[in-house]
Computed example of a mutant assay.
Amino acid sequence: MAPTKAPDSSRRSDRSRRAIHDAALALVGEVGYRRTTIEGIAARAGVGKQTIYRWWPSKAAVLMEAFLDLAGRAAEEAGPRSGDTAQAAQGIPDSGDLTADLKLVLRATVDELNDPALEVPTRALTAEGIVDAQLGAEFVTKLLEPQLALYVTRLRAAQEAGHLRADADPRIALELLIGPLMHRWLLRTLPLTHAYADAIVDYTLGGLTPRP
């Protein structure tokens, strides 16, 4: 008889972890962060509570890892299909044309915010992060800051190339770009479009006052 092959525990663990991620994201989208529980996640994923607590200390930790995993998967899946937009999602290109590069990456951000798979958990975690300081800080540190750092790097490169005022603060500049986008997305005041993203870049870099 051929020897029986032992089960691959690492593969089983990966499947369980992915099932937990998917269950957590589905529940937070359906019932909101506060009504999402470890028990509910475990039941949806088909695992025991002890499995979740062995890997994560809280539901916030589960959701944060699940969301980061989802964002990573979305970027990988977009890569071969979306060309420049996917490239912008991975980082801000430096073509030498600051306006074009910023429009490219803001359009990619619009696409992500309009994607239901990403929008629902992002909105839930963003809302809860406002009232839960610890979750909010983790959301900023693990998700937002690495993305914002890409803007700072690109804007500093533009300064060195003479394409941006030398005395401009890159952090304030990136907030002028990202702030209006997030404001419209959070309040749902008007549609979030590529044209709006382009206008933000034009207004930020060109200013609103007449030039001589």
Rank of each mutant, 00 (worst) to 15 (best):
D101T: 09
A86D: 09
E112H: 01
I52H: 02
E76S: 09
A117V: 11
E65T: 01
E128D: 11
P93W: 07
P121G: 07
P57T: 12
T126K: 04
L118F: 13
A124Q: 06
L118N: 07
P57R: 14
F67L: 10
P116A: 04
T85R: 15
D97T: 11
P116V: 05
A89Y: 06
V120A: 14
V110N: 03
L68C: 08
G79E: 15
R123A: 11
Q134A: 14
I92D: 01
D132N: 15
T51Q: 15
Q87F: 09
Q50Y: 01
G136F: 06
W56M: 02
W55P: 00
D97V: 10
G48F: 03
A89C: 05
A45R: 06
L106Q: 08
E76A: 14
W56R: 14
I130S: 04
Y53C: 00
S95W: 08
A127H: 04
L98T: 04
V105C: 12
R73G: 11
V131D: 12
Q87C: 06
A124G: 02
A74K: 05
A43T: 12
L63W: 01
D132T: 10
I92G: 02
T85F: 08
L113W: 04
M64I: 15
S95I: 04
A86E: 08
A74E: 06
R73L: 08
E76D: 13
K103A: 03
A117M: 08
R44L: 10
A60R: 07
A60K: 03
N114C: 12
A117Q: 13
A78I: 00
V120K: 13
F67I: 03
L118M: 15
V110F: 09
A100I: 05
A133P: 01
G46R: 15
Q134W: 06
G72F: 01
E112N: 03
G96E: 03
L125A: 05
N114G: 10
A108M: 07
A127V: 07
V120H: 11
V62Q: 03
Q87G: 15
A66V: 02
A71I: 04
F67N: 03
T99S: 09
D132E: 14
L98E: 04
D111F: 02
K49T: 08
G72K: 01
W56H: 15
L113F: 10
A89I: 02
E119L: 07
E65A: 10
G48H: 12
A45Y: 10
A127S: 05
I130H: 10
L118R: 10
G72V: 00
R123T: 08
R107A: 13
W55T: 11
D84K: 13
R54C: 06
A100G: 12
T122S: 11
V47I: 12
G96Q: 03
A66K: 01
R107K: 13
T126M: 11
S58M: 05
Y53T: 07
L70N: 05
L104Y: 13
I130M: 11
L118E: 07
A43Q: 14
L104C: 15
G48S: 14
L135T: 02
A78T: 01
R44A: 15
Q90E: 13
R107D: 14
T85C: 03
E65K: 04
E77N: 02
A71V: 10
P121M: 04
L102Q: 00
L113I: 05
A88P: 08
W55M: 10
A45E: 09
S82Y: 05
I52P: 02
A61N: 06
E112C: 02
A66F: 01
M64S: 13
